[in-house]
Design a protein around this nucleic acid. Sequence first.
DNA 1: GATGAATGAGTATTCATTCAT
DNA 2: GATGAATGAATACTCATTCAT
Lengths: 197, 197, 197, 197
Amino acid sequence: MQAKAKTFTESARRAQIVAAAIETIAGLGYARASFAQIAKEAKLSSTGLISYHFANKEELVRTVLEDVFGEISAFMAERMSTPSSASAALRTYLEANLEFAAAQPTRMRALLNIFLGGALGYDPATEQAALEPVERILRWGQESGEFRDFDVRVMATTIRRSVEGPVFLLAGAPETDLTAYAEELVTLFDLATRRPT
Amino acid sequence: MQAKAKTFTESARRAQIVAAAIETIAGLGYARASFAQIAKEAKLSSTGLISYHFANKEELVRTVLEDVFGEISAFMAERMSTPSSASAALRTYLEANLEFAAAQPTRMRALLNIFLGGALGYDPATEQAALEPVERILRWGQESGEFRDFDVRVMATTIRRSVEGPVFLLAGAPETDLTAYAEELVTLFDLATRRPT
Amino acid sequence: MQAKAKTFTESARRAQIVAAAIETIAGLGYARASFAQIAKEAKLSSTGLISYHFANKEELVRTVLEDVFGEISAFMAERMSTPSSASAALRTYLEANLEFAAAQPTRMRALLNIFLGGALGYDPATEQAALEPVERILRWGQESGEFRDFDVRVMATTIRRSVEGPVFLLAGAPETDLTAYAEELVTLFDLATRRPT
Amino acid sequence: MQAKAKTFTESARRAQIVAAAIETIAGLGYARASFAQIAKEAKLSSTGLISYHFANKEELVRTVLEDVFGEISAFMAERMSTPSSASAALRTYLEANLEFAAAQPTRMRALLNIFLGGALGYDPATEQAALEPVERILRWGQESGEFRDFDVRVMATTIRRSVEGPVFLLAGAPETDLTAYAEELVTLFDLATRRPT
DNA sequence: GATGAATGAGTATTCATTCAT
DNA sequence: GATGAATGAATACTCATTCAT
């Protein structure tokens, strides 16, 4: 169905390498995540194998991002189905994000390490892609009259960054209760967005 | 009060190198900010000159951080003097931060790239230092009855990250109006923190 | 018995590099035996190839020592089998050492340059290992009554250094007759150790 | 009286630098005895000052050697005056050498570190200079009939190396009794050189 | 005479990538 | 498909030496 059909072996290897890359980037930070380290993590005999399956380090990193974003999307899609109102959607968005951070802390750390390690030159398009779903919810709420009249871009940016907060926090304090954290964020943004009565 | 007396030439060179380092880290990200790149930016004859003035890359980075933090502190100190209420303090905090981001976008980008680039192993203490002033304001507001009863840590983290948001945004959209952005954040967090009537 | 199985190509390369290192260390002294010099001697494309095969300079030097000690041990083992008396053993020890120095002058010079170059922090244990076989012979001779009552440590140190003497001498006067040199040393230490009648 | 008259200040500085060089070479080994380290030891403000007073590192090292050899010669000259016999002279030579090693361990260590560090390409002339006085004693003894008919070069080399032995030994075992060591050597070489009766 | 600054070649080591087998 | 070997540019950092002041 897809543009380039890959053999089973090939995609299995690619998946294995991507998994090792995630583990390594999350563990050592992007700067120290060399092909050598990734190959060791994947128990590969040669870094050449990575180059064989990925044109560049950049392609590998892009694939890692696609994998992580794919997981997030799937996770979110399952949870966000047909919300009854914008504020319910917002609540679900916040909760689902923190649930994902709790469920997949390694993937989340890898994601952030890539962005912050300066792996790719800052790409506004990627940022926009992450912001899009939030902005959709916010616009819906404003149109339906649930939400007050704020700047959608500012609110979306703030919300997006608020759910990334605990990812770092988890590194320093792994026992953090993300369910409680989510509840606080829900209240915070409910008050911040709700149309005053 | 002065730690070590340096000659004029030396501190001029150090300043020049620090400035070039800021420019380079802001522009290329921490990972790609090698001595070679910094030397090129500063038009130095060799990377050896950097090593001549800084014992380590770490010392250089530390000096960059001190420079940036120094600027921020001076800027904030001037603006935050004797606020009359916690909510006024919070407003000032948000405004001053965004003003600084508007005035010194390069310094700000460098700062964030350093932290996110994993230049220094993630250090909870540093994070706490950044959070401390915000938490103080929030506790004050809760004690005085201005603010409602939220989790201080969560709110502080969210506020801190909210003011970092526009730093990246500026790279993609330099025309962003940070005064308006600040006004939105002030309203957002006023609603989020204020004791309901 | 074998520690790590290496491929043929790898051990060939390692051997080639070790040989070049020996040549270089013997010729220029340890201090000037940089990876660059060794690579030039071995006609390698880059110093990176040395780092590819040896984790450290230390590992390379250790391998050089193992190579040289291995050769010496093999050489000595063949010659020292079941001596009939302590004085015969001492004679054989002296002769075998000088024969080796004549047969492998480069290896010997490399060995001494490494030790004297301070490549490894002065290690009493290594020195003791070199002294051990001599001390064993001397104690045997004292117990059997062949040798007089001298301080074993002093005599052993003197003997050990005496066989190192010609290694340097060879550099200045390559025509030196080491067989005659050995004969002189045999007589010297026979007189010095023998129980007076 | 001397070829190049130097000002007082100049020779004082040179002496100070030489002293610091000795201390540094003895302490850190030749390889790590950089101008920077020597300047620090001498509390000099700049390594440039060393270059100002010495054309090369080589000249500095040569001057160090001259200083050390000068001290040794003076020490020896005082002790060796008009010996009554070759065997007495040999005894005195051995004792004086070990006394010097005990009195000036730093100078001795520096001396050896220079030779062994490969500081200067192996120079047969220097070695010959060290051997000369010993050979003179040995020839005297053979001519007077006190000594047996051995190869002077071999015996001299062995004697020379025997007195260097304890210098290394002192590093590992500083409590070594060099007087006793000297007595052992005296006996050893008395037996080895004496004409059999 | 002395100082601090600068230079540029040198150090070992790491890296992504290529390629023959 | 996979492997081990090789490449050469890049990394931060050190060094002896030069030079203007």
